[in-house]
């Protein structure tokens, strides 16, 4: 059985800015637990001489030439912004008062 705890799930939810009810935390703890258990089975057969897969397609060194391309106009850039001042994105206060 995995060692995923409800505290860990609540912590992750907080970091990911997802509001969960106690009931959801409980059921997710169980679900994540079985996922971790299943992944652990793969570790049992992956011996030291099997390198970790970092990407499903075996490609590497895919680079772009250092040549400037087309940029968005400021209007395009701001088109999807909830709020802006004409040239910059406007976001709500980031921190509260200094403590």
């Amino acid at each position: 059985m995995s060692e995923i705890t409800q505290e860990q799930v609540a912590h992750l939810a907080n970091l990911a800015r997802i509001a969960l009810t106690p009931h959801e935390i409980e059921s997710l703890t169980n679900e994540l637990g079985s996922i971790v258990d299943n992944v652990a089975k793969v570790s049992e057969v992956a011996t030291a001489d099997v390198p970790a897969t970092s990407h499903p397609i075996p490609l590497q060194n895919v680079y772009r030439d250092d040549v400037p391309g087309t940029t968005l106009t400021t209007e395009q850039a701001l088109a999807g912004a909830p709020d802006h001042d004409g040239s910059r994105f406007r976001v709500t206060a980031i921190l509260g008062e200094e403590q």
């Binding site: 040239s87 910059r88 994105f89 976001v91 709500t92 206060a93 509260g96 200094e98």
Partner: peptide, 17 residues
Amino acid sequence: GGATGRIQGAEYSLVDY
């Protein structure tokens, strides 16, 4: 906003990417 243009107490922030 806020007294000194610092992050604490600011009303909002503008972002240039």
